[in-house]
Design a protein around this nucleic acid. Structure first.
Lengths: 227, 227
DNA sequence: GACCGTTTCGGAGTACGCTCATTAATGAGT
DNA sequence: ACTCATTAATGAGCGTACTCCGAAACGGTC
C-alpha cells in the first residue's frame, strides 16, 4: 500500500525491513550450519522477529531455503545463458548453460540437495517454490532455444525441432536434477558425476539431431529386421 | 538366532510376527489415508506395538513407506521385465519395462510421489531405502541390457554400446522419476505425462543408436561448419 | 487528534516424528 | 530350576516446525 503522496507508508517499510532481515538471517545461517542444523527459532532470533512472524514471510522452512537459493540459481542461470551464447557447437552450448549451475551447487552440497528436494516436492501453492519452478522453466527454454537455433543452422524442420528440443531440454533437466540430488546421497558413488552428465547430454543432443535427420514421415530408426 | 534343534526360537517368532503386523498396518493405513495423513501413532496402534517399537523395525516414517512400496515396485518391475522380453523393437521394449511402473504409480499418486522423494532424499544408511535403490539399479540394468541386445543385433560395437546403454538407462530413470514426482505437484500440467515419457525415451534411444552409428574415432555430430 | 476498520505481530500452544532410560523377555550355561 | 548376560519392548519425554488468536500498529476519515 502507498500513501496518497506516493511514498511508502511506515507499515510497508517495516515489512520491507523485516523481509530483508529474515532473508539475511536465513542466508547466513544456512551457509554457516547447513539446512538441517538450522532451526526456525534461530532464524527468527537472528532476524529479530518472533517465531510466528517468520511464517508470514515464508510459509515453511523449506520456503526460506527456496527464497535464499533462488537468487543463486538465478545468477548462475544468467551466467550460463551468457556463457552459452559464445559457443557455436550445440553440445558445448548446453554444457555452458549448466556449467555455472554445477559450480554453484558445489559451494554447499547439503543445501543444494535440499533445494532440489523442495523444488520438486514442496507443496504446490508456495510462493518461492513457484519462483524456483519458473527458473527451471527458463533453464529448459534456454536449452531448447539453443538446440532449435542449431537445427535451424542445419536447415532442419523448425516445427519438428521445437518439439524435439522441448523433450531434450526436459530430459536434460531431469538428469541434472538427479545428479544434484545424488551428490550428497551418493547413489552412484563410483563415477565422476560431471563426466556422466556430459556424456548423457551428448547422447540426448545426438538423439535430438538424429530424430530430425531421418525425417521421413514414418519415424525412422526402428528395428530394421535381421535380413 | 536359531535353537540347536534348528527351529527358530520364540524370540525370532515374536519379531517376525511384529514385523508382519507392522507391515500390514502401515500398508493398509497408507493405502487408506495417504502418507501425509497417517501418523506413526496410528500405525503402532493398528500393529499393536508401542510407539517406540516401530522404530526398531524401520528407522523412520519414510522407511515404513519404502518397506511397503518396495514390494509393489519389485512386482511392477518383474512384470515389466517379463513384458519387455516379447518386444523386438528396442523402443517398445523399454516402454514395456516402464509401463507397469506407471500403472502402479497411478494406484496411489500421493504415496508414489512420497516414495520417489524418500528414494532420492532419504538418509543414506537406511535399510529399505537401499533396497529401493537396488531396484532402481536393476531397472537401469534391465533397460541397458535390452539396448545392448538391440545393438548387438545390428552388429554394432558392443563395448561402446555398453557405455552408451548405461548412460541412456540412467537418463530414462531420471525422466521417469521426474514424471512420477511431478504427477502430484503438477509442474507441467498441460501435457500428457505418458506421451511425454514416450517421446523422451524415443529420443534417447535414437541418440543411443546414432552415437553408435557414427563410430568413427572422433565423436561425430558436432557443428559441421556453415560452408 | 480522536476514532475505527484493517493488517501485522507475537509467542504460548499444538502435533508429530523420534529418542532414550528403564523394564521385560529370552535363552545359554550350570 | 536358577542365574545371568543379552537383546527386545516400552512409553513418557523431547525437539522442532508450524498454528492461532489476542494484542498492537497503522492509516484513512471526520
Amino acid at each position: 500500500m502507498v500513501t496518497p503522496s506516493g511514498t511508502p507508508g511506515r507499515r510497508d517499510r517495516n515489512m520491507q525491513d523485516k523481509q530483508t532481515r529474515i532473508f539475511a538471517a536465513a542466508a547466513s545461517l544456512f551457509a554457516e550450519k547447513g539446512f538441517e542444523r538450522v532451526t526456525t527459532q534461530q532464524i527468527s532470533e537472528r532476524a529479530d522477529v518472533a517465531a510466528g512472524t517468520l511464517f508470514r514471510y515464508a510459509t515453511s522452512k523449506g520456503e526460506l531455503l527456496m527464497m535464499v537459493y533462488n537468487q543463486q540459481f538465478r545468477a548462475a542461470l544468467s551466467a550460463g545463458e551468457r556463457e552459452s551464447r559464445s559457443r557455436r557447437d550445440p553440445v558445448d552450448a548446453v554444457q555452458a548453460v549448466v556449467g555455472p549451475l554445477l559450480a554453484a551447487a558445489d559451494s554447499n552440497v547439503e543445501n543444494t540437495v535440499n533445494y532440489q528436494r523442495e523444488l520438486l516436492f514442496g507443496s504446490a501453492d508456495e510462493k518461492y517454490r513457484s519462483e524456483g519452478l519458473e527458473l527451471v522453466a527458463r533453464l529448459e527454454e534456454t536449452i531448447a532455444h539453443r538446440l532449435v537455433e542449431a537445427a535451424r543452422n542445419r536447415g532442419l524442420d523448425e516445427r519438428q525441432a521445437e518439439d524435439q528440443a522441448r523433450h531434450a531440454s526436459r530430459s536434460i533437466f531431469a538428469i541434472l536434477h538427479l545428479i544434484l540430488a545424488r551428490a550428497f546421497t551418493g547413489a552412484h558413488p563410483h563415477n565422476d558425476p560431471e563426466a556422466d552428465l556430459h556424456a548423457q547430454i551428448d547422447q540426448i543432443v545426438t538423439g535430438f539431431f538424429a530424430a530430425l535427420d531421418d525425417d521421413r514421415p514414418a519415424r525412422g530408426k526402428r528395428e530394421p529386421g535381421t535380413s
